[in-house]
Design a protein around this nucleic acid. Structure first.
Lengths: 133, 133
DNA sequence: CTATCTGTTATAGTTCATCTATATCAGATA
DNA sequence: TATCTGATATAGATGAACTATAACAGATAG
């Protein structure tokens, strides 16, 4: 199974799919040109409606993560994970980062430990072998 | 104004309130014993229904951030931001951190730059003077 | 005591996001 | 031709989010 979701989660299914794909790219499991399953195929695997997968793919396309053709289906874009940061993205991203780190601080996670976990996660990216295209 | 929200945001209002309070505690603007505005007062200031504020406060209470009494209203809890991390919180938190960092990586934000921004945000916590109780 | 503020709870309604269910059309392919 | 695909339209069910009132009880100031 390329992807697993949690139907009981409060996070919408289409967003879970988006998150898993983004994480798979960061991990290196998906590389440039990697083909994602067809919407109907993935929907069948996950036992959900294909419109939900369609929404997730459309979200990934809007965010520039994948490219969708009628011929080749959904494939990971060239510059995903390698190109320069999009203009304005970093600032918007840091706002969300700040909220997440504040939550850690309030719940007793020390700054040093939080920073260490950030480093661990970042260090784990790109280490997994990509699926051969 | 203690708090600002964005009515046009996709983030629910009650969650925005929760986030702002958590960030204010991390920043040091709110310390142990700091009193939050009454639900009706804050609702009036934000021009929203007081039930929405009530939901935000109830969420903060469930997460152990504030304490609510009929006498003293909503005040920041003793151990918020200082006590040891709650059991299981760090692991659940790291899952969300991983999703956020993966998104940065995919959008071209380098690991070094991402880690630097984490450090900056963490370093900015606790520097602002607390409101005198 | 009265008035007012507070938190708490209940009910009800609207709006919208989410997800599902079908159906149709067109391009690609075996 | 048959089948897979993406793309699109419509419709319905469910629940979250937000608002609108209302009512009750404890606390407090006048």
């Amino acid at each position: 199974m390329l992807l697993t979701i949690d139907l009981d989660s409060e996070v919408p299914i289409y967003q879970q799919i988006r998150d898993r794909v983004v994480e798979a790219i960061a991990d290196g499991e998906l590389v440039e040109g990697s083909a994602l399953p067809s919407t109907r195929q993935l929907a069948a695997d996950l036992a959900i409606n294909f419109h939900t997968v369609n929404k997730a793919y459309d979200l990934l396309r809007q965010q520039g993560v994948i490219r969708i053709n009628r011929k080749s289906g959904a494939v990971v874009r060239r510059d995903a994970g390698s190109g320069p940061a999009e203009a304005g993205f970093a600032d918007e991203w840091q706002v969300r980062l700040r909220t997440l780190l504040a939550e850690a601080a309030v719940h007793g996670l020390g700054a040093d430990e939080a920073l260490q976990r950030c480093g661990e996660v970042l260090g784990s990216f790109g280490t997994k072998k990509g699926t051969p295209a």
